[in-house]
């Protein structure tokens, strides 16, 4: 089962912020981690992530910096900012709310009281 494009797009920001809340990371590693965590079911098209990272950086949620990788090449890493952590909390509440509502609807008998 693969996710719809809309759901993938909507979940990109919380996924990126959640990973960066744990550790600094670079683009390719972000994609790999999401792929592994979802068992290959959330598969971002590779090029799509970088404009999203640019947008999050422009919004002040994350910052980027260059660091030498083990290969000696310079690589752009990302870290979450304070505003990004606040945004992540807000997104967690929203996604939890949607998850809870859907969970209740799907567990209980559908009774419409109106």
């Amino acid at each position: 089962m693969s996710l719809s494009k809309e759901l993938i797009a909507a979940s990109t920001t919380p996924l990126v912020l959640s990973i960066l809340a744990q550790r600094e990371c670079y683009g390719y590693a972000l994609i790999k981690q999401v792929r592994e965590l979802s068992g290959d079911r959330i598969s971002w098209s590779d090029g799509m992530l970088y404009p999203v990272l640019r947008r999050l950086e422009a919004q002040g949620l994350i910052t980027s910096f260059w660091r030498s990788a083990a290969t000696g090449r310079r690589r752009r890493y990302y870290r979450i900012e304070k505003a990004g952590k606040q945004e992540l909390v807000r997104l967690q509440e929203q996604w939890n709310l949607v998850g809870n509502v859907l969970g209740r609807l799907w567990r209980e008998d559908p009774v419409c009281s109106y």
Binding site: S45, D46, G47, M48, P51, V52, R54, R55, A58
Partner: peptide, 23 residues
């Protein structure tokens, strides 16, 4: 394969332009 996964240049540039319009 890797280049194809990144997408074609025009589409990629379009995504970047949308992400940061005033850049």
């Amino acid at each position: 394969v890797s280049a194809r996964r990144l997408g074609d240049p025009e589409a990629l540039a379009g995504e970047f332009a949308t992400a940061e319009p005033g850049l």
